[in-house]
């Protein structure tokens, strides 16, 4: 079995995001970039399948600007066999453009299973997996929290509203990974040292124009932070009202 993992580099969850002078992009200086955390689940799962003797190779494909090489090195450090970066110049929030770039490359490769994160935490899109499924005409199972691969078939436990379901399908297939699937390993330092020397193959991506473009960006209203609703049990109705109407979490 051959596995492909699609990975993206995203700003750290804790990064302080600043809007640029053009008012439609963010300032990258000072931001620490990390591997998309959900893609980390995908890499870990692929390596685990390989370690279980069920896959002979794991290749990670990244997309994005030159700096994205870093996350591919992380993938190598974790245990991925080979990597390729499909280099784009612009930072896009249009997942269809990204899916087409990935599909164009993947069509030239042989594979049995594609793994990727359920979403990328930068644009919050949950589209790459399902879109790739359509573009490659293979089944796609999303939000997977448990995966069993058995030769030509796979069985996946996936999250649905209010519970879960177990889905089976035939390979080749694509699976998007949800938190709970595994605990991504910390890359071994030996792996990190090897990855430092790894020459990342960089291929220019055949990107088409985005159909979704950002016109302006703005900061959200400052988080209320530290609002003491009241004292004791009598404050409860006010709290519930706030959670229901202001925070919209109930």
């Amino acid at each position: 079995m051959k596995i492909i993992v699609c990975v993206k580099q995203v700003p750290d969850t804790e990064a302080n995001i600043k809007i640029g002078a053009d008012n439609k992009s963010i300032v990258e200086a000072g931001i620490k970039f990390i591997i998309n955390p959900f893609d980390e689940f995908a890499i870990e799962e692929a390596i685990k399948i390989k370690e279980a003797g069920k896959a002979e190779s794991v290749i990670a494909i990244g997309w994005g600007p030159e700096r994205s090489q870093e996350v591919l090195r992380t993938a190598v450090a974790m245990g991925v066999d080979d990597v390729v970066l499909l280099k784009t110049d612009a930072v896009s929030i249009d997942s269809y453009t990204a899916a087409k770039i990935l599909a164009a490359k993947i069509k030239t490769m042989s594979y049995d299973l594609i793994l990727t994160g359920k979403e990328t935490i930068d644009d919050g899109n949950m589209q790459i997996g399902p879109m790739l499924g359509e573009l490659l005409n293979i089944p796609c199972v999303t939000l997977v929290t448990k995966l069993d691969v058995d030769g030509a078939n796979l069985s996946a436990k996936r999250e649905i509203e209010g519970g879960y379901e177990v889905v089976e399908t035939a390979c080749p297939a694509i699976v998007t990974c949800q938190k709970g699937l595994n605990e991504p390993r910390y890359p071994s330092i030996r792996g990190v040292m090897l990855a430092k020397k790894k020459v990342v193959a960089v291929e220019p991506a055949a990107a088409e124009a985005d159909q979704i473009t950002v016109t302006t960006m703005a900061y959200p209203a400052a988080r209320s932070g530290g609002k003491v609703v009241g004292q004791g049990a009598e404050a409860v109705p006010a709290l519930v009202k706030l959670l229901h109407e202001e925070a919209r979490v109930l």
Partner: peptide, 30 residues
Amino acid sequence: SLAADCIALDATGGKLLAERSLFAGKVFAK
């Protein structure tokens, strides 16, 4: 393409404009 998880949706002059959050709500984009 798909504009996902929009929090505002408007139309002017036949154009479709939307607003959505990026970077886990640290920025909103039109």
